[in-house]
Amino acid sequence: MPDISALEPLTQKRGIARFFRKYGKHYLGLAPFFILFAVFILGAMIYGIAMSLTDWSTKANAVTEFIGLENFKNVLTDETQVGRRFLTSLKNLFFFVILAVPLNIIIATLLSLIVNQFRGRAYRFFRSAFFLPYVAPFFLATGVWLWLMSPGSGAAWTLFAKLNIGADVSWRTTPGYFLALLLMVDLWRAIGFNMIILTAGMKNIPQELYEASMIDGATTFQQWRRITLPMLEPVLFFVIVNGFIGAVQVYDIPWVLSNSSTLGTIGGKSAFASYPVMEIVGNVYSGKAGNLGTACAEGVVLMMIIMAITLIQIIWRSRKMREEA
């Protein structure tokens, strides 16, 4: 064999050129999406994580300095104003999430089981109607419920007052009732979304399973428990994971609800009506020294919460599946 090694660099160079001639156009087609994604989404995310370690601020000609974990210390103690507010908002978030996600999933599952009992036109009608609240933009949903729940005159408020619930309070300005009002608006709007996904999942369950169980004399409720829900597990899992990610970032509805002169500031002076994303945005506008670094640190905390919740669910599910296998 003649000396091949001397030829190698040449073929390699040709190889790269050939590679690009062959595949280059595909990367070119993907470029617009990935460049925008890399610069504006991924790049911003990494930058934000880095800047959470600095005293970055909106102040003109302020010098940004590395301050280590100082922001995280400030944000997670009750010794600073920012920290007190953020911790309160996390506490509010905890109660919102553990109520909103399970209630949403349970009601959405029940509704899809119900919708799935109908056929043809009735099926399509109920599914469309139950999805309608989700179509209404958040400001429409919040506006309608604020009006229905306005103290003294709102139709829903009067109904609750007759049942002796909140008869002498304004729901949007009273702690506790605020959460109830928030859940009311959020669930009214968001349940339809999960219902659509769950009914579609139910349509994918093989009909033979139901036919076989009917021969065995199973009732509708038995079919739900033994066939529908177990077969729906992957879809339910997606809906739950997605539900948590969405709920942790709750922002627009409580913003509008707490936009009240009685409360003074968005989220309330004691932050009783505040949620973490509202605190983050509030910091951006506060104009205080190091405000952006603080906001970034709060964002990182929230991201870790989301990642932890998602990971726990994934691990829990895979462990359960291994046990069953």
């Binding site: 989404i41 991924l42 990610i245 983050i280 952006l292």
Partner: peptide, 20 residues
């Protein structure tokens, strides 16, 4: 990458992106 970014929460990048 595209699939996993569907799960990416907006709050993670929105503040730096706004400054950008």
């Amino acid at each position: 990458i595209i699939l996993s970014s569907m799960m990416l929460p907006m709050i993670v990048y929105v503040i730096p992106l706004y400054r950008f």
